[in-house]
Amino acid sequence: MGRYVARRLLQMIPVFLGSTMLVFAMMYALPGDPVRALAGEQTVDPAQIAAMKHKLGLDLPLWHQYWNYLTGLFHWDFGTEIASGRPVADTIADAFPITIRLALFAFLFTVIVGISMGVFAGLKADTLRDRGLLILTLLLISVPSFVLGFLGQYLFAFQLGWVDPNVSAEANWSELFLPAVVLGSLSLAYVARLTRTSVAENLRADYMRTAVAKGLPRRRVVGVHLMRNSMIPVVTFLGTDLGALLGGAVVTEGIFNVQGVGRAVFGALQHREGATVVGIVTLIVIVYLVTSLLVDLLYAVLDPRIRYA
């Protein structure tokens, strides 16, 4: 187990280097010039621009810029935004807590509602309630999140007035409810379907018959014997899903004006703020790697037939 974790952690190093390099190169290749953009419509002396680029190190070859960036990272220096002169670390520190809150909220919603719906349908597969759930999840999967977002905003904020249409800079839990539901609804549909299939399948397993034959009460048969087995594939999905949610959601955050990672990265891309984009993407990659490692470890806890060496 320990060796397995160590190996997985070591594997993160090349993934980290590769992903940062890739994003770095892509930012370099993008058309547009952040320094020239500072001046807007005004005509500027090219020499002035060149001087500024030299100051920021943007005139160096790609590999050199990347090297500078990496060495900076080791001193916890994520670089500085060109336009505002603000350290990228500050932008990240502002955006991530909000996204984490939104992601956890959406995740909780997905887990609780999705699994309950799946169990509810799976216990009585091929009945009316099962079919109803199937149609509902199909709808959630096929409707794009921006439609769902605007629809929710129109209905609950503008028509019913239950919530504010926009999330303030504080991003309170109550404000985040609607965005979290919209963000979590797609995974909710997948989780519900996965749970439903898993439950319906395991219900027919031989060990379930044994559990009944042992004279166990139904809540124990379902709650212990069925659920322990049915949750294995669902947990795997939930883990990767949590990673994806933590990566921010450009569309949902945009609709509800959530000042999270998705918006930050989108804004940085528009302004060609290379350091910000690379910094955030790198963090997202690390979060994703860590959550998938945790999922793999949890998998072995849930299913004793799996052993890591």
Binding site: T210, V212, A213, K214, H225, P304
Partner: peptide, 25 residues
């Protein structure tokens, strides 16, 4: 009936591997 199952009448199944729960000791 549940009270009888396991306590008064018990059953042994054919395939013990699939009849025992794989994830419980």
């Amino acid at each position: 009936r549940r009270q009888i199952r396991g306590q008064k009448i018990a059953m042994i199944f054919q395939d013990a591997l699939s009849s025992l729960n794989p994830v419980l000791s």
